[in-house]
Nucleic acid binder design. Structure first.
Lengths: 205, 205
DNA sequence: GTCTATAAGGAGATAGAC
DNA sequence: GTCTATCTCCTTATAGAC
């Protein structure tokens, strides 16, 4: 069954719907800033400003402060991103077509965001891996779930042990491609990653 | 020709040789902290402390301040890392063996550093890509050189157009594997990346 | 040249008015 | 609950003693 999801899902970090509550606006602004600038590079004052919320409201809704807000963002946007990718994969019947389509779609979204929005957790993960054990663990949980989810998807087309290596490769290629694409302001790495992923999948069948 | 380089090159961010000058110690401490904690997450006070140097010496040797120091680190450690990888690739005659060997060696180094040292520029690149155009450009230059260097190496074994996709895939897999490996404190992503890279190279020959 | 003290500003966090 | 003012600490950067 293909095309189970709409072919133009909203970007993960688009503006929040008008009329959203203060808490929702704070979460949205925080997700965007943390994803783009990392943990240390994001100031709570900026979060409040972007959310059009008073500074104190952050501590009203997130008594744990910056750490609690960041962990919430990692654990929320991580699964959202996986759902988005799995949705894209369902839009094509042939698995090789599906993989290439997902990477091409990611390339378009990256350009559309002005090369700002790639992986919602990678920037924060690298930022905190050496200094914040709680947030490192949260990011590790997210990546593990992605690989499990990817393994399940690839298992529909190849043997389980091969499926796991394919899922790992897919996550790594996505992350590497977002890093190169954002840094070079070029969508080509994502398309190249899609071609490589298609080759790997074809070789495993 | 194989084994052109020693089989145990010193880690990129090992301690500086005793008797190093103040400038060298500052550059070394900065390279390590920027690589591990990113740009915003690294304080110049910490750099001075780690370098056993007075705070003011940073501005004596780097009048441009934090930005100048960070750009120097990106442009210095980037080529060093490529040289290290190319050296590892020369230690095996068969190209598929060489690729697997390089990833296995990277996996060992990652574990040996306590999962602290992966790519010397990726953390900073993601940290600054949205906020500092100069440093973003420096990181983009480094990645472009890596892909050019990798394309030249793969061109010894496959056609030029295929060599470029292989080089891109290698950089992306390395970066993704370092991200997953550091975050999960697990060397397995680097080994999985090596297996995928071997598959891609074999498929391209 | 090496090093210290301080300036000026921004950070996270809190207290309390409304 | 919403919002403001402030507290304390830490940052980059500089001035100037030695």
């Amino acid at each position: 069954m293909a095309a189970a999801t709409p072919s133009n899902p909203p970007p993960l970090l688009a503006d929040p719907p008008p009329g959203s509550g203060t808490r929702a606006r704070i979460r949205h602004a925080a997700a965007r800033l943390f994803a783009r600038r990392g943990y240390a590079g994001t100031g709570l004052k900026q979060v409040a400003t972007d959310a059009s919320a008073p500074f104190g409201s952050i501590y009203h809704f997130f008594p744990g402060g910056k750490d609690a807000l960041a962990e919430d963002m990692i654990r929320t946007t991580g699964p959202q991103f996986m759902a988005l990718v799995l949705g894209l994969l369902e839009e094509r019947d042939d698995p090789v077509d599906a993989v290439v389509h997902a990477f091409d779609s990611a390339a378009r979204d990256l350009v559309a965001s002005g090369y700002a929005d790639g992986c919602p957790v990678a920037t924060m993960a690298l930022d905190v891996v050496d200094t914040n054990e709680t947030l490192r663990g949260a990011a590790a949980d997210v990546f593990a779930e992605w690989i499990d989810g990817g393994t399940a998807w690839f298992s529909r087309h190849v043997s389980p042990d091969r499926a796991r290596d394919l899922a790992s490769a897919m996550v790594m290629l996505v992350e590497g491609a977002f890093l190169l694409g954002r840094t070079s302001r070029d969508p080509e790495p994502l398309r190249a990653a899609g071609r490589s992923m298609a080759t790997l999948l074809a070789a495993a069948r």
